[in-house]
C-alpha cells in the first residue's frame, strides 16, 4: 500500500486513511466468508436498529400531537413521499416503501459512519453498487413491463433533427448504462473521500506545531461531511425517483 511505504519506523507522518474501510471479522482473525459476522454486519445492524428506534419506537405513541421523535419520523416520511410524488408522479407511490428503505438506509448509514471509530458501510462500492443495480433493474424491468417496446423511445429523441437521432440514441444508451455506475460511485466516492480527508487531517495532528490547525480542519470537514451525508442520501433518492419517472413516463 502506497501510503504505508512511509512506515512508522522512519519517523515521518503515518497516514492510514484507508484502513478505516477494511472489512474484518468481528470475532477473531481470518478470512471473510459470505456469512461471517463482520464490522459490516455490526454497522448495518446498528443502522437497522436506529431506523427501528426512530420510525417504530418513536411513533409508538401514535400521538395526534407528536413527540419530538415522532415529528422527525413524520418529517422524513413527508419529505420522501413528497419527493416521490413531485418527481416521479402519483403512480410511483407504489414504490414509496422501496425508495424510503433506500433513503433511510443510506441516511442512517452515512450518519452512523460519522461517529468516531465507526465503519461506514455506504463507503463501499459493493454496497452502493448493489443498491444502484437494484434501482437500475427495477427501472428497466418496470419500463419494459409498463410500456413494452415503447420504452425504447427513451433513447430516440424525437425532438432532435432526424440525422442526429442515431448518434443521440447511442449517447443516450451509453448514459443509460452509465447510470448505475455513477449512481453507486457518487455515493461511495463521496463517503470515502470525506472520511479519508478527515483521516488525513487527523494524521497531521501528530505534529504538535500544526495540531491545532489540523483539529480545526477536522472539525470543519466534519461539519461538511454531516451536510454531505444528508445531501448524498437525498441525491441518491431523488435520482432513483428521476429514473423511475423515466420508466413510468418515457416520453419526455
Amino acid at each position: 500500500m502506497a501510503t504505508e511505504a512511509h512506515g512508522a519506523d522512519d519517523g515521518g507522518l503515518v497516514f492510514h486513511p484507508m484502513d478505516q474501510f477494511i472489512v474484518k471479522p468481528l470475532f477473531g482473525e481470518g478470512a471473510v466468508g459470505v456469512f461471517t459476522l463482520t464490522n459490516v454486519t455490526l454497522w448495518m445492524a446498528l443502522t437497522v436498529l436506529a431506523i427501528i428506534a426512530l420510525l417504530v419506537m418513536g411513533t409508538s405513541g401514535r400521538a395526534t400531537i407528536p413527540t419530538r421523535m415522532q415529528s422527525v419520523a413524520e418529517l422524513l416520511y413527508e419529505f420522501v413521499r413528497k419527493m416521490v410524488e413531485d418527481v416521479a408522479g402519483k403512480d410511483a407511490l407504489v414504490f414509496f416503501p422501496y425508495i424510503m428503505t433506500l433513503f433511510l438506509f443510506i441516511l442512517f448509514a452515512n450518519f452512523l459512519g460519522l461517529l468516531p471509530m465507526a465503519f461506514t458501510t455506504t463507503s463501499h462500492i459493493a454496497v452502493t453498487a448493489v443498491m444502484a443495480v437494484m434501482v437500475f433493474l427495477t427501472v428497466t424491468i418496470l419500463g419494459f413491463v409498463k410500456n413494452g417496446p415503447a420504452f425504447l423511445s427513451l433513447f430516440w429523441v424525437s425532438s432532435a433533427p432526424l440525422a442526429l437521432r442515431p448518434i443521440l440514441a447511442v449517447i443516450e444508451l451509453i448514459s443509460y448504462f452509465v447510470r448505475p455506475v455513477s449512481h453507486s460511485i457518487r455515493l461511495a466516492g463521496n463517503m470515502m473521500a470525506g472520511h479519508a480527508v478527515i483521516k488525513v487531517f487527523a494524521g497531521f495532528s501528530q505534529v504538535a506545531m500544526i495540531a491545532p490547525l489540523s483539529i480545526l480542519a477536522v472539525s470543519a470537514m466534519y461539519g461538511l461531511e454531516v451536510l454531505v451525508s444528508f445531501i448524498q442520501a437525498y441525491v441518491f433518492t431523488i435520482l432513483t425517483c428521476v429514473y423511475l419517472k423515466d420508466a413510468l413516463h418515457p416520453h419526455h
Binding site: 472489512v23 471473510v32 466468508g33 456469512f35 459490516v40 448495518m44 459493493a126 454496497v127 443498491m131
Partner: peptide
Amino acid sequence: TFGNQIFWLLVT
C-alpha cells in the same frame, strides 16, 4: 469481502 457485504446488505 464483496460476498459478505452484499449478503448483509440484502438482509439489512
